[in-house]
Each structure stands twice: as structure tokens, then as C-alpha cells.
């Protein structure tokens, strides 16, 4: 069952001065539960594609359907609400709230969703245990390594029980061991929580473990490989 569908998605930056075609008629479908990596060299359009799917940027033309909803037509306020309910984000630079502890960072999104306190506490503890940070619940980001911070970011993205998680170069700031560890966690969560993962990367270690690899070059989908 498709969770994300893009149809003829095109994005042109500076259309009136020096046009830069970031995406050219990209049409892809991603089903629920997939573990998909979007790969390609710098400037190939993978981050732009993720931003379009996440409703963080508007396409020049084409549509993005998330669970049947055309996100390109949603207004700002609707988009914020849509993201809160449906999408989890993992950023390359972790982007945790520095003044919050790991526990607070994870539960923050559930506070925005106005979840029940007991449920919130239970879910936070479960997720932090699941990403191997049970002993660092009260640590602040500056007291954690990059790998640990990114694991908190994954736990945060999962906290709201989103339909899918978008991760832009999640391992780019991590060493090999931390990257592999994070990937293990993401795969486990994909399996256990049945959450769809869509991530961009140019890290071969990550590409090797993805179940589907969409390769982009110059804003065009050059290859779409499903693996077993």
C-alpha cells in the first residue's frame, strides 16, 4: 500500500534569473514499511526530494501524495499540523534542543501532540531503551557523543508514531561504528514499529543495507532497485 507518491515532481530554483533544475519530473511510489535510501552525488536532488515529500518546500510543478493527501496544496498551518501527525524527521546535524535532556527531547513532540503524560513517559522510556540510551535519559546533548545524539533524534522521530520517517544524511556526521549502530537501530525500528524509513545518503555502508535504493542524478531518477 503506497504511503508516498510523487507525480512529475519538478523543482526549479531561480526560475527567472539563472534557473537551476533540482528535480525533473520525478515520479516514485514508496509503500508502507519500506526501508528506502535515496542516493546520488551532491546536487543530484535527493535532499530536495526529501524536502518535497516532508512538505518543507513547495515544488515548481507536480504533486506529492502522502497517504492520499496532496501535501503541495496544504497551507502553512495545515502543513505544520500534518507533519506533526504523520512525519518524523532526522537531520544530519541531529538538531536536538540543547537545553533539554534526552528524555525531554524525545517527549517534546508528544507534548506538542498533547499526549497523555503517562503514555508519554512510557513511550519515551521505551524508545530510549530501544536505541540503547536507557542510562543517558537525563543527559543533555552536549554530554553525549554524535552517535548518541543521533540515536536520540531517531527516538524523537519515532515518538509521535509517524507514518514514515525522513532522514537526511543521518550518518554523515558519524564515525563508522556509530553509523552502523544507528543503521541497526533504524532497521530494527522499521521491523518492530512497522515505520517506513526514507533517507538520503551517499554513504556506501548505508546503501549496502537498504532494501530499496533510488539513485538520482541531475534531478532525475536514474535507477530504482528493490532488494531482498
Amino acid at each position: 500500500m503506497p504511503i508516498v507518491q510523487t507525480e512529475n515532481l519538478t523543482k526549479v530554483y531561480n526560475p527567472e534569473t539563472v534557473p537551476v533544475h533540482a528535480l525533473r519530473n520525478v515520479s516514485i511510489t514508496i509503500d508502507t514499511g519500506e526501508f528506502t535510501s535515496i542516493v546520488g552525488p551532491s546536487g543530484s536532488g535527493k535532499t530536495t526530494l526529501l524536502n518535497m515529500i516532508g512538505g518543507l518546500d513547495k515544488p515548481t510543478s507536480g504533486t506529492v501524495l502522502v497517504d492520499g493527501v496532496n501535501v503541495t496544496r496544504l497551507k502553512d498551518r495545515q502543513l505544520i499540523n500534518f507533519r506533526l501527525k504523520n512525519i518524523g524527521f532526522v537531520f544530519q546535524h541531529f538538531n536536538l534542543i540543547p537545553v533539554f535532556t534526552a528524555r525531554e527531547n524525545v517527549s517534546f513532540i508528544m507534548l506538542l501532540q498533547k499526549k497523555d503524560k503517562k503514555e508519554m513517559r512510557q513511550r519515551t522510556d521505551e524508545l530510549l531503551e530501544a536505541v540503547g540510551l536507557g542510562s543517558l535519559k537525563d543527559a543533555r546533548p552536549r554530554e553525549m557523543s554524535g552517535g548518541q545524539q543521533q540515536r536520540v533524534a531517531v527516538a524523537r522521530a519515532l515518538a509521535s508514531r509517524p507514518r514514515f520517517i525522513l532522514a537526511d544524511e543521518p550518518t554523515a556526521s558519524l564515525d563508522t561504528r556509530a553509523a552502523m549502530n544507528l543503521l541497526d537501530i533504524m532497521l530494527r525500528m522499521n521491523h518492530e514499529e512497522q515505520v517506513t524509513f526514507i533517507f538520503s545518503t551517499h554513504d556506501q555502508r548505508v546503501i549496502d543495507r537498504a532494501r530499496r535504493v533510488i539513485t538520482m542524478v541531475d534531478g532525475i531518477v536514474e535507477a530504482d532497485e528493490h532488494r531482498k
Binding site: I80, L84, F89, F91, N95, I109, L112, Q113, R156
Partner: peptide
């Protein structure tokens, strides 16, 4: 800026 961008991305409203 990046932190505020993150808050908007994950679903914190502009009013908040």
C-alpha cells in the same frame, strides 16, 4: 535559526 527551523519542521506551530 537551525533549532527554530527544526521546531517548525517537526510540527511546532508558529503561534507557539
Amino acid at each position: 535559526m537551525r533549532e527554530l527551523g527544526m521546531l517548525l519542521s517537526i510540527g511546532m506551530s508558529k503561534v507557539r
